[in-house]
Simulated scan of single mutants.
Amino acid sequence: MRDPYDVLGVSKTADEAEIKRAYRRLAKKLHPDANASDPKAQDKFAELNTAHEILEDKEKRGQYDRGEIDAEGKPRAPDFSGFSGGGPRRGPGGFSGFDGDTIFESFSFGPEGVRRGGPRGGGGFEDVGDLFGFGRQRRSAGGGFAPTPGADMEITLPVSYEEATAGASKRVGLPNGKQIDIKIAPGTREGHRMRLKGQGEASPMGGPSGDAYVSVTYAPHAVFERDGDDLRHSLDVPLPDAVLGAKVRVPTLTGAVELAIPAWTSGGRTFRLRGKGLPTATGGHGDLLVKANIVLPKAQDEELEALMKKLREAAAQD
């Protein structure tokens, strides 16, 4: 996977606002719905979301910059150059083998990298990695070796606000080349994680495959701006409607609804449509906040100008 900075097209000194702007711009450009003819659209969009997930999080960004995780957010294996504990022993006659007990007491080697542990216990498996040159294996309590399962995979699945609200079926590409359809239930929230057992990476030693975990993320929307579980929308209101009042159509995630604009509505006034936002943790929905944006007629109107002059003169006298 490419460098997250290259994916977003930002420098390593970019601040949070610059990263957010770059992500929104590219998300609209690369969204699969806007690139239906591109078979790689889903992969490109997933790569963009992974890069954004790393760089928007200060902790993950720091880990990536220090080389602790890779471009997919996975831990990097540490450098063992110069490692001496539990290594080969040499006696007066030369090489005399590994001090295996010391090695297994100090470290265990797994798909997630190397971790320090205590002395060996009496049961279960112990991951000894590729220590002796014949693949990642696990030592069993009986003294034999069992192949290590394949690595788990994390997949980010972008869904639109409408799909999260009403439910949808989404096609996902898996590491093994399969294409599967995943059903998104109505009311699915961002961060929901699904396990696909045995759909991760294959084991290099013939063991069981790992699992694939699919996490739902919200894709940027062209009409609504997210504010927690609420949505915000700026609605253009013609000047006559703002002065005299009118009923206007407002888009929502479940279809347009009618909103009554009272007479003498000022620009910036916000109307709340309850239950028209995103799914909440309690099973309900947030609200839609509609801000009135007063717009003038497209054509120049001399009578309107004369009226405005009259009002301005009256205001000056007051």
Rank of each mutant, 00 (worst) to 15 (best):
G191E: 02
F45I: 00
A314Q: 10
P297F: 09
Y5N: 09
A260R: 14
L235V: 12
T156C: 03
A34F: 14
P158R: 00
I19Q: 11
E201R: 13
R90F: 15
G86A: 15
S266T: 09
A212F: 03
H221Q: 08
A146R: 13
D230P: 10
K197P: 03
L244F: 15
L278W: 02
P39L: 01
R90W: 13
G62C: 10
R272V: 15
L289F: 03
A164V: 07
G73M: 02
A306Q: 13
D99Q: 12
G121P: 11
G277K: 01
K12T: 15
R193C: 02
A27P: 09
G93I: 11
Y218R: 11
Q179E: 05
D241E: 12
G85H: 09
R193D: 01
S160C: 07
G286Y: 05
G150H: 01
D79Q: 04
A151W: 09
Q137D: 01
G73Q: 02
G117F: 06
Y218T: 02
A14K: 09
D318I: 12
F45G: 00
R171A: 11
D79M: 07
G286C: 00
A14N: 12
A185I: 11
D181Q: 08
G267T: 14
S209V: 06
P240K: 12
L311K: 07
A314H: 07
K197T: 14
K298D: 08
G91V: 07
R272C: 12
F224N: 02
G198I: 00
G97C: 01
R25V: 14
E47F: 05
R195T: 11
D65F: 05
V172M: 10
G135F: 00
R25P: 04
D211N: 14
G268D: 09
D181V: 12
R226T: 10
G255I: 08
T265W: 08
G142V: 05
D229P: 03
R274H: 08
P279G: 05
R116F: 15
